[in-house]
């Protein structure tokens, strides 16, 4: 249970970063923290104490398996997160080229 709460706290840290920080790159970092917190939570949900890799063969049976579905989902989620982060960072770089600043307060539209 503790690990779940810890990953929720990690998620909240990421959310705090996204909402409060004023630097575009720090916002992107907040996103990554948020994503990883969720991925961690997902993997932990699938974990069984003492479980092994979920591969069925003739000689392996009657053991506890780790739930494979969350792992597959997390892989997909990581790929999606990668895409989002790459886009976010590239936009931050383009904005930097226009304004010579990562500071959200110096960028007209994003203020407030």
């Amino acid at each position: 249970m503790t690990v779940f709460i810890l990953s929720v706290i990690l998620f909240l840290i990421g959310l705090y970063g996204v909402l409060v920080k004023r630097n575009l790159i720090k916002i992107a970092l907040g996103f990554m923290i948020m994503e990883y917190a969720i991925n961690l939570l997902f993997v932990l949900i699938g974990y069984r104490a003492g479980g092994t890799a979920p591969i069925f063969t003739q000689d392996v049976s009657g053991q506890i398996f780790v739930d494979p579905l969350p792992q597959a989902l997390v892989l997909t989620a990581i790929v999606i997160g990668l895409g989002t982060t790459a886009l976010l960072v590239s936009f931050a770089v383009r904005i930097y080229q226009k304004y010579e600043s990562f500071d959200i307060r110096k960028i007209r539209e994003l203020r407030g």
């Binding site: 996204v18 575009l24 916002i27 996103f31 989002t84 886009l87 976010l88 936009f91 931050a92 383009r94 904005i95 226009k98 960028i107 007209r108 539209e109 994003l110």
Partner: peptide, 10 residues
């Protein structure tokens, strides 16, 4: 456009 998109993305 970039700023609007950034806000949208966030």
């Amino acid at each position: 456009e970039l700023e609007a998109s950034f806000k949208y993305q966030v």
